[in-house]
Lab assay of single mutants.
Amino acid sequence: MEQATVKWFNAEKGFGFIERENGDDVFVHFSAIQGDGFKSLDEGQAVTFDVEEGQRGPQAANVQKA
């Protein structure tokens, strides 16, 4: 698992990007966020996640709020 920071997340559209420590951004979809209830992330929030290869490149999976 990697630890990184949420760059931005649009709760209405259900997706955003996580900024990795190496500077690369990773796409995150609300369905990858672990937990119950409304799944959203806040800008600047610390998260841990795995990286999977998606249809359009790397994307976050198993996202957990740190």
Results as ranks from 00 to 15, higher is better:
residue 16 G to I: 04
residue 28 V to Q: 02
residue 5 T to N: 09
residue 32 A to N: 06
residue 15 F to M: 05
residue 40 S to T: 14
residue 61 A to Q: 09
residue 44 G to M: 04
residue 23 G to V: 03
residue 45 Q to N: 06
residue 17 F to P: 01
residue 27 F to L: 02
residue 13 K to D: 02
residue 12 E to M: 13
residue 29 H to Y: 06
residue 64 Q to K: 12
residue 58 P to C: 09
residue 18 I to N: 01
residue 37 G to S: 07
residue 36 D to C: 15
residue 19 E to R: 15
residue 1 M to H: 12
residue 48 T to M: 11
residue 30 F to D: 00
residue 61 A to G: 08
residue 4 A to N: 04
residue 66 A to H: 12
residue 47 V to H: 01
residue 28 V to K: 02
residue 38 F to E: 07
residue 63 V to G: 01
residue 20 R to Q: 07
residue 64 Q to R: 14
residue 25 D to G: 06
residue 30 F to S: 04
residue 21 E to K: 13
residue 43 E to A: 15
residue 3 Q to V: 13
residue 3 Q to A: 12
residue 6 V to K: 01
residue 39 K to N: 06
residue 28 V to H: 02
residue 63 V to T: 03
residue 22 N to G: 10
residue 49 F to G: 01
residue 44 G to F: 05
residue 25 D to I: 13
residue 50 D to I: 15
residue 58 P to D: 05
residue 28 V to I: 08
residue 15 F to L: 05
residue 14 G to V: 04
residue 58 P to N: 07
residue 22 N to C: 13
residue 46 A to C: 15
residue 57 G to M: 04
residue 2 E to Q: 14
residue 27 F to M: 00
residue 50 D to R: 14
residue 4 A to G: 15
residue 61 A to N: 08
residue 36 D to T: 13
residue 31 S to M: 07
residue 66 A to T: 12
residue 40 S to D: 07
residue 19 E to V: 15
residue 45 Q to H: 08
residue 33 I to Q: 02
residue 32 A to V: 07
residue 1 M to V: 11
residue 5 T to Y: 14
residue 54 G to L: 06
residue 49 F to W: 01
residue 20 R to S: 05
residue 28 V to M: 06
residue 40 S to W: 15
residue 55 Q to Y: 14
residue 23 G to K: 10
residue 64 Q to G: 07
residue 17 F to T: 00
residue 17 F to E: 00
residue 6 V to D: 00
residue 18 I to Q: 03
residue 45 Q to V: 08
residue 64 Q to D: 05
residue 5 T to E: 04
residue 61 A to H: 09
residue 14 G to L: 03
residue 29 H to D: 01
residue 15 F to Y: 15
residue 49 F to A: 02
residue 9 F to S: 00
residue 36 D to S: 13
residue 52 E to Y: 13
residue 46 A to K: 13
residue 51 V to F: 09
residue 25 D to N: 12
residue 27 F to V: 02
residue 52 E to I: 15
residue 3 Q to S: 12
residue 24 D to Y: 10
residue 59 Q to M: 09
residue 4 A to K: 03
residue 43 E to C: 14
residue 2 E to H: 14
residue 1 M to I: 11
residue 51 V to D: 01
residue 45 Q to S: 08
residue 65 K to N: 08
residue 58 P to H: 07
residue 44 G to D: 04
residue 8 W to K: 02
residue 33 I to L: 07
residue 13 K to A: 08
residue 4 A to Q: 04
residue 16 G to S: 02
residue 33 I to K: 00
residue 15 F to H: 04
residue 6 V to P: 00
residue 56 R to W: 15
residue 17 F to H: 00
residue 8 W to L: 02
residue 52 E to K: 10
residue 23 G to C: 07
residue 31 S to E: 01
residue 5 T to Q: 09
residue 17 F to N: 00
residue 43 E to F: 12
residue 29 H to P: 03
residue 41 L to S: 02
residue 21 E to Q: 13
residue 18 I to S: 01
residue 62 N to A: 05
residue 37 G to C: 10
residue 4 A to S: 09
residue 29 H to N: 03
residue 12 E to F: 13
residue 8 W to D: 01
residue 40 S to K: 11
residue 4 A to F: 06
residue 34 Q to G: 08
residue 59 Q to T: 07
residue 54 G to K: 07
residue 17 F to Q: 00
residue 6 V to W: 00
residue 37 G to M: 06
residue 2 E to D: 08
residue 10 N to M: 05
residue 10 N to R: 06
residue 21 E to Y: 11
residue 48 T to R: 11
residue 53 E to Y: 15
residue 46 A to Y: 13
residue 18 I to G: 00
residue 26 V to D: 00
residue 32 A to W: 04
residue 37 G to W: 07
residue 14 G to D: 00
residue 14 G to T: 03
residue 46 A to R: 14
residue 64 Q to I: 12
residue 31 S to Q: 05
residue 3 Q to R: 15
residue 6 V to L: 04
residue 42 D to C: 15
residue 43 E to N: 13
residue 15 F to A: 02
residue 23 G to F: 06
residue 27 F to E: 00
residue 42 D to H: 15
residue 63 V to Q: 04
residue 59 Q to F: 11
residue 29 H to I: 05
residue 50 D to A: 12
residue 34 Q to F: 10
residue 59 Q to I: 09
residue 28 V to W: 05
residue 5 T to L: 11
residue 10 N to K: 05
residue 60 A to W: 02
residue 34 Q to D: 07
residue 60 A to C: 03
residue 57 G to K: 04
residue 65 K to H: 09
residue 65 K to E: 06
residue 53 E to T: 11
residue 23 G to I: 04
residue 33 I to E: 03
residue 59 Q to K: 09
residue 30 F to H: 07
residue 61 A to M: 11
residue 32 A to S: 09
residue 53 E to W: 15
residue 54 G to V: 05
residue 16 G to P: 00
residue 37 G to A: 07
residue 3 Q to D: 06
residue 24 D to F: 11
residue 33 I to P: 03
residue 63 V to S: 02
residue 23 G to S: 07
residue 41 L to H: 01
residue 11 A to K: 15
residue 13 K to S: 07
residue 1 M to P: 13
residue 12 E to G: 10
residue 22 N to Y: 11
residue 27 F to T: 01
residue 41 L to Y: 02
residue 58 P to G: 05
residue 11 A to F: 09
residue 49 F to N: 00
residue 8 W to Y: 06
residue 34 Q to L: 13
residue 38 F to H: 08
residue 15 F to K: 00
residue 1 M to R: 15
residue 63 V to F: 00
residue 7 K to S: 05
residue 24 D to R: 13
residue 8 W to Q: 01
residue 28 V to T: 03
residue 34 Q to Y: 09
residue 12 E to L: 14
residue 24 D to A: 14
residue 10 N to P: 01
residue 13 K to N: 05
residue 53 E to S: 10
residue 50 D to V: 15
residue 2 E to N: 12
residue 53 E to C: 14
residue 30 F to C: 07
residue 22 N to F: 11
residue 37 G to P: 06
residue 57 G to D: 01
residue 17 F to I: 06
residue 63 V to H: 03
residue 49 F to L: 07
residue 11 A to N: 10
residue 44 G to P: 01
residue 63 V to P: 01
residue 22 N to R: 09
residue 50 D to N: 15
residue 56 R to A: 09
residue 54 G to D: 05
residue 28 V to N: 02
residue 51 V to T: 08
residue 11 A to D: 06
residue 5 T to H: 13
residue 37 G to T: 06
residue 12 E to N: 12
residue 59 Q to H: 09
residue 3 Q to W: 15
residue 44 G to W: 05
residue 39 K to F: 06
residue 38 F to W: 14
residue 19 E to I: 15
residue 29 H to T: 02
residue 13 K to E: 03
residue 36 D to G: 11
residue 12 E to P: 05
residue 46 A to L: 15
residue 46 A to Q: 12
residue 63 V to I: 06
residue 37 G to Y: 07
residue 18 I to D: 01
residue 38 F to L: 08
residue 15 F to S: 00
residue 42 D to T: 15
residue 23 G to N: 08
residue 63 V to D: 02
residue 31 S to N: 06
residue 44 G to Q: 04
residue 7 K to T: 03
residue 4 A to I: 01
residue 29 H to A: 05
residue 58 P to I: 10
residue 42 D to N: 13
residue 12 E to Y: 13
residue 44 G to L: 03
residue 10 N to Q: 05
residue 24 D to S: 14
residue 60 A to N: 00
residue 19 E to K: 15
residue 58 P to T: 09
residue 14 G to N: 02
residue 5 T to S: 08
residue 60 A to F: 03
residue 2 E to K: 11
residue 14 G to I: 03
residue 18 I to R: 01
residue 6 V to T: 04
residue 49 F to E: 01
residue 28 V to L: 08
residue 66 A to P: 08
residue 45 Q to C: 09
residue 55 Q to N: 11
residue 29 H to G: 02
residue 34 Q to I: 14
residue 10 N to H: 07
residue 62 N to F: 08
residue 17 F to V: 07
residue 2 E to C: 14
residue 25 D to E: 10
residue 18 I to Y: 01
residue 20 R to V: 09
residue 51 V to H: 05
residue 32 A to R: 05
residue 6 V to S: 02
residue 39 K to T: 06
residue 7 K to V: 05
residue 13 K to L: 13
